[in-house]
């Protein structure tokens, strides 16, 4: 298997590529660029048609194998969400809308067309918000256990209250198998985990992980859509996935057994096989 190549494609289109920056986990080499007034770490790797991957809220470093596999078939663009990158976002940048417009601007700035927009969990929510605003640069949507749409009754939890769960229960809700062991994390990875939690709260504390308006506009996401769910997701249940799929005509739902909320981490091969066989097939 050839190693994925890191490409700085069309550097002239990156308005402000300043430097090769090392992100704060110290593991990935990234380009630093500016979109509007927002500084963004963007990793570009692989070759093939463009794919924008919006990462899940937790465990960015554990999602790297998935990104590497995507890069075998796509040119994968992976931005780090503002705040999650260790920087403080601008004072007027604090809603899911801001993230959606930021990445729509990013696609425009890079002049990407025919994009497979992939997002997991919190990133899946951003992808949905982008798709209902403008699908003009998109060819397909790949949504792995996305958040963001309110479907249950007012006294039901669509999304488990992770912040109110003991740490062990929280991890059991997120993983079908053995969860990551914090004792093995580096100091930087632990700090990153705390940053991740901080910025989930920053963008989505109340209402908790949804946009009340999103459900009624789902019909605007007009591109072929693939929903992928973990069969043992204790954070957002597969039943929620089925209800969401029913709201998105034509969407294909695959439930991956043996995976919790992050099938791209826990069942990488199965997730890739599903993606290659679905509406996003490259």
């Amino acid at each position: 298997m050839p190693l994925p190549t890191v490409l700085n494609r069309d550097i002239s289109k990156l308005v402000a590529v300043n430097q090769q920056a090392t992100d704060y986990e110290g593991q990935y080499s990234m380009d630093q660029m500016t979109v509007g007034s927002v500084t963004l770490d963007l990793e570009v790797q692989g070759s093939g048609p463009p794919l924008l991957y919006l990462h899940a809220e937790h465990y960015r470093h554990l999602q790297q194998p998935f990104i590497d596999r995507l890069a075998e078939s796509w040119t994968v663009h992976t931005p780090r969400h503002p705040g999650f990158d260790g920087r403080t976002p601008p004072g007027d940048f604090r809603r899911i809308d801001d993230l959606a417009y930021l990445y729509l601007d990013l696609m425009a700035q890079l002049d990407l067309d025919g994009v497979t927009l992939a997002g997991a969990s919190f990133g899946g929510w951003i992808a949905l918000e982008m798709a209902v605003r403008s699908a003009s640069r998109l060819s397909a949507l790949a949504l792995i256990t996305p958040l963001g749409v309110r479907l249950g009754a007012r006294d039901e939890r669509d999304f488990a209250d992770l912040f109110a769960l003991p740490e062990a229960e929280r991890e059991r809700a997120l993983f079908a198998g053995t969860p990551p062991d914090f004792a093995t994390f580096s100091e930087d990875q632990l700090t990153a985990t705390a940053h991740d939690r901080q910025y989930v709260a920053y963008y989505a504390w109340k209402p908790y992980l949804y946009n009340p308006s999103l459900a009624r506009w789902l019909h605007r996401a007009t591109v072929p859509t693939h929903l992928i769910w973990g069969g043992e997701d204790g954070f957002v249940s597969p039943d929620y996935g089925r209800k969401l799929a029913a709201r998105m005509p034509g969407a294909k739902l695959d439930v991956i057994l043996g995976a919790g909320h992050y099938p791209q981490i826990e069942r990488l091969d199965d997730t890739m096989a599903a993606l290659r066989a679905g509406p996003c097939a490259p």
């Binding site: 912040f163 109110a164 769960l165 003991p166 740490e167 929280r170 914090f182 004792a183 994390f185 100091e187 632990l190 700090t191 990153a192 985990t193 705390a194 940053h195 939690r197 901080q198 910025y199 989930v200 709260a201 920053y202």
Partner: peptide, 23 residues
């Protein structure tokens, strides 16, 4: 007090929360 309520996200510096997660 249950530990998850001692460190609400963003209230305490991330370095402190990270240390508590690890140890």
């Amino acid at each position: 007090m249950a530990r998850q309520f001692q460190y609400p996200p963003g209230l305490v510096p991330s370095e402190v929360v990270g240390r508590e997660l690890g140890n």
